[in-house]
Design a protein around this nucleic acid. Structure first.
Lengths: 348, 348
DNA sequence: GTTTAGCACTCTACCTTTCTGAGTGCTAAA
DNA sequence: TTTAGCACTCAGAAAGGTAGAGTGCTAAAC
């Protein structure tokens, strides 16, 4: 069953109005605000029909209608007008993200902050993920006897370091030789293929130092965990505090549930990953209300997109806001930010 | 004017009750809950007197009393019973912080998380600050032509890295020579004394490579900014979302103000620094309500203490909670965590 | 068949009023 | 100095009343 034209317009108008005011929309105010060439009674009939079909909900009998999840979904899929970023907005974003960032971490942090500022909602930016990364460099720097800094550089430009302990008596030279050997053996290898065994093989094939196996293995183990840890997703989230200003979160309990979930970076990152896989071919992923399978986010909508490093699928950025979100605006903002990230990460 | 003994007991009892219930305390319930050997009428007189002296406040005529900032202050300074951590609590904390951490960042992150879990309030942990740090190492690793990772190691065990761009044609050897020269010249020097000039002097005194001055200066400038940036305080904050569960923040506006301020790490860090200087000699710093000169935190209390690295004053950890805080419990928790941090940072 | 005017109906939000009870301060006696 | 007793105050809950935004339905008009 497909909606006739007027019903589509009615649904669209109701979503638009509700997004703007956060108040249930009645037939009268709908007439006032839009140029329907029919009477309020006609709209009432349409609205009743839309409700029967599940696109609208009524908080109580004598109130107006608000969009249901299904209503928002229809709106997002086929009703909303995709609007372009205004020049000023584009300019503002460019001012914050235009300059060249030397590290992916600071780029993503800035992206999250910009996105939060511009949308007024919660933003997040995640480092590139495992699947698309391979090891490019591995360095081990002796900081003091027994303490070594392992620096791991991944293809996507991610740099991670980790301090590890090794036996006191190993020298900088020995350590350097080991790390060179491992680097030679593994550089270019996708992270997913790196295991304790491949690390060991790489080291033993290439190294010239004589070290007892047990000692060598100890060092290799540390190198291995450092590499593995480097593919941990980092999540940069910003703008949380803004949600408290929204009327839908004036009830502290809701805000509490939301913040509770958001305080677990890992949960959110995992969810984004899942969603990205489901909608693989799409340019952006949208999840609305109950569609979100993360506890505490059922009053929210979640929009994510994927940025690329040198043209390859890499990490995600996204926005979490109320269901009553300015979808098309947020989408264009997110797209613009993604574009700037892509640019920065390809011209390197 | 000093309070007589019974008045002290009354004040103490009122604070204790109010902390427990968050409800104004009346003379009747005070009698019920404590063994004062006098009648409620007597207590009423005492309470009226305490109010006249500014230790108590009355939300309205027919309500009980709640402690004023001055009342809390008196309580903290001389009334509360300092209680020890229960064995289980100590055990729980040890479980989370007992294992050895290789990096100061992960230690502090874990400390913040533990403190938030244990207290139920907001915790924070800050990296060691400038004054107590000197440079121990400086390494520059060529990641790819034109891109160099500068690794800065400070005395307190802080490791920071920063990616910088340099002219494409410089080789790893040239870069290594420069960084070795700078490291030799500066290692052991307090951060506060390092300037662009000292960096340049160090490089020119020690290096043997021939490079045009303009090129060399470009590299040195990047090294210098990397060093300077390394003394930026990192702030780890945890447990924010818990505040929403407290009755004093069921009004979203207050929570919003609080979160707004807390979203600026720098502000908080700056304030902690200020407070630490004021109370230099004290083991811990306490600020209550209006005593806190940070907008949005006037309904809170703030307890901080200083951990040491090898016996020297270093960074801060702290807890932000409602004024109605379990002061003595929080103090002992904070102290315990500080002790564990001190241990970890001295036996290295 | 679709649209519309008209009307009775519903229900929340808001205001006012009343009532209750916890808590007070004061007075006068112990 | 302490206490019993009492009149007083005031927030908050409960109850009642009103306004108005919005509805659904019916019957007439297009």
């Amino acid at each position: 069953m497909t909606l006739d034209n007027r019903k589509k317009n009615v649904l669209q108008a109701i979503v638009d109005d509700y997004v703007a005011t956060c108040e249930p929309v009645g037939s009268k105010s709908l007439i006032d605000r839009h140029d329907f060439m029919v009477s309020s009674a006609t709209l009432r009939n349409d609205m009743a029909e839309l409700e029967r079909l599940g696109y609208l909900e009524q908080p109580h009998t004598s109130a107006g209608r608000i969009p249901s999840d299904k209503g928002y979904r229809e709106y997002v899929n086929s009703l909303m007008k995709v609007d372009c970023l205004s020049d000023e907005e584009g300019q503002e974003i460019k001012e914050k993200l235009g300059r060249s960032f030397d590290e992916i971490a600071s780029l993503l942090k800035a992206a999250a902050s910009t996105l939060a500022d511009q949308t007024g909602y919660i933003s997040l930016a995640m480092t590139p993920k495992l699947a698309s990364s391979y090891l490019t460099q591995l360095k081990m720097l002796m900081i003091e006897p027994g303490k070594v800094l392992v620096v791991v550089v991944l293809s996507a430009g991610v740099v991670k370091n980790r301090m590890v302990r090794i036996p006191d008596f190993l020298t900088q030279e020995q350590i350097a030789q080991i790390s060179n050997a491992v680097e030679q053996g593994l550089s270019g290898m996708p992270l997913s293929e790196i295991s304790l065994i491949t690390v060991a093989t790489a080291a033993k094939d290439n190294q010239k130092v004589e070290l007892p196996d047990s000692l060598l293995n100890q060092v290799l183990y540390e190198a291995y965990t450092a590499i593995k840890q480097a593919d941990n997703l980092d999540v940069y989230m910003d703008g949380k505090h803004r949600m408290l200003a929204l009327p839908e979160f004036s009830d502290t309990r809701r805000a509490q549930e939301l913040f509770n979930t958001l305080s677990h970076d890992g949960l959110v990152a995992g969810y984004v990953d899942e969603v990205t896989k489901e909608d693989e071919k799409k340019q952006y992923m949208i999840r609305i209300g109950q569609e979100i399978t993360l506890e505490g986010l059922n009053d929210c909508s979640f929009i994510t997109t994927t940025y690329t490093v040198n043209g390859k699928v890499a990490g995600n950025i996204g926005v979490i806001g109320p269901k009553r979100m300015e979808y098309s605006k947020v989408i264009s903002q997110i797209n613009f930010v993604r574009m700037l990230i892509d640019q920065q990460l390809s011209d390197s």
